[in-house]
Design a protein around this nucleic acid. Structure first.
Lengths: 221, 221
DNA sequence: AGTTTATTCAAGATATCACTTGATCTAGCT
DNA sequence: AGCTAGATCAAGTGATATCTTGAATAAACT
């Protein structure tokens, strides 16, 4: 057996990656950054933490090599170091959902009762988009739609959903999506559309997962 | 925005999975368990920790849903909760290798200089096995070979390697593999075979990765 | 039923983590 | 050159982790 101290150091390094993700606020930061880069200030507002605390969490992630920075004018913008990090986060979330019973309870506590929210997989949506007719609504903030969206999707931020609903022809099949499987926007959109008698489902995942799976994405208008 | 406390609790649950892997000793335990189930006692010897400490680490992993137990006679045997956990560990290790420069340094410190150790990918080995001629040596302890091995591989524990080497015909192409990309046995085997003038490479990964990738595995004799 | 053996529990010491507060830095403005 | 907004640093506090030691369990043997 080779040197135990060297082996410990190597495994400690592997562990340090997990440790960086092993905090709820940092996990949420990674989840937000999977949507695209953010300034410290914007991020701190999004995760509802102090700027100093957010900065320190970002530095923990940076030391683990999970995020990178660039300066943009007066602000520093953080982004995930690569798609690998987003994939790791996705897998971590999946293992949590599969193996930790409390996740389902907590998800219900956060998102509300989802039993009425029908889901559609990315694979099925891709097929419908290619061969069928389906109205896809991007219910994220407009800035995120502009940065990237599912090819063929319409922008439909939640606060404009009432107007958008007016334009949907009777009998149309609607799919709403947002940031990821635990993003509330798509659930809220489906509820809102259902209340107007529109058949709507939500994409089971979100845009980052769609993009990483290799399905078509469009940028800007 | 929905209830912040509920959101925090949900992300904290995701983080708890990472936290469970966020310790070098627990990471090593998961790595060992990816080879197959182990008793607390056997595991504690393998990771060179006290039984009490190993037991406590295992309970942390169990609370995170990453391992399960079953009783076997006088001992309790732990195993990974599912292949998902092994995949998560594999991805974590991969992100560490890609994004944390120190991993390469630490790996060299543990495994020694690998510049002379030629590697072969699982895909290439699978092809060689199917269409070409290659001698595959499983250099893990015999008990692990018996539990599962690459279909067509010969058992060749390191301490029997000298004998095995005698039986390898001149000009043969040899591939050694063991537990994973950071397992020393395969590196040592390649060095030993090289010293005898035998052309040998190591599989870049190990048996668990081979199996999870869907390549053929055999059990027992 | 008593004994053995493997495992777990409980308590305590030390180190690390998370968050706050207030000060400091720094690049980009005027 | 000085100012400003955004970001980081430094120090301090309470909470959480890690490991040790010795005792307590509990299932499987005789």
């Amino acid at each position: 057996m080779a040197d135990r101290a060297a082996k410990d150091a190597l495994y400690a390094a592997f562990g340090s990656i997990a440790k960086a993700l092993g905090n709820g606020h940092r996990a949420e930061i990674v989840d937000v950054l999977a949507q695209g880069e953010r300034s410290v200030d914007a991020l701190s507002r999004e995760v509802e933490q102090s700027v100093a605390n957010t900065s320190q969490h970002l530095q923990v992630l940076a030391r683990a090599g999970l995020v990178r920075t660039r300066r943009d004018g007066t602000s520093v913008r953080y982004r995930l170091a690569s798609d690998d990090v987003a994939s790791l986060w996705e897998e971590l979330r999946g293992v949590a959902a599969t193996h930790l019973a409390e996740v389902e309870v907590l998800a219900t506590g956060y998102l509300g009762d989802r039993s009425e929210i029908e889901q559609i997989s990315a694979a099925e949506l891709a097929e419908r988009l290619a061969y069928g007719s389906v109205t896809v609504l991007d219910v994220r903030p407009r800035s995120e739609y502009l940065a990237a969206h599912i090819r063929g999707a319409r922008p439909a931020p939640l606060d404009e959903m009432a107007d958008v609903a007016e334009t949907i022809p009777a009998g149309a099949e609607v799919v709403a999506y947002c940031r990821g499987p635990y993003c509330v926007y798509a659930d809220d959109a489906v509820r809102l559309l259902h209340a107007r008698g529109i058949a709507a489902r939500r994409l089971a995942t979100g845009l980052p997962e769609w993009r990483r799976a290799g399905y078509p994405v469009a940028v800007a208008g």
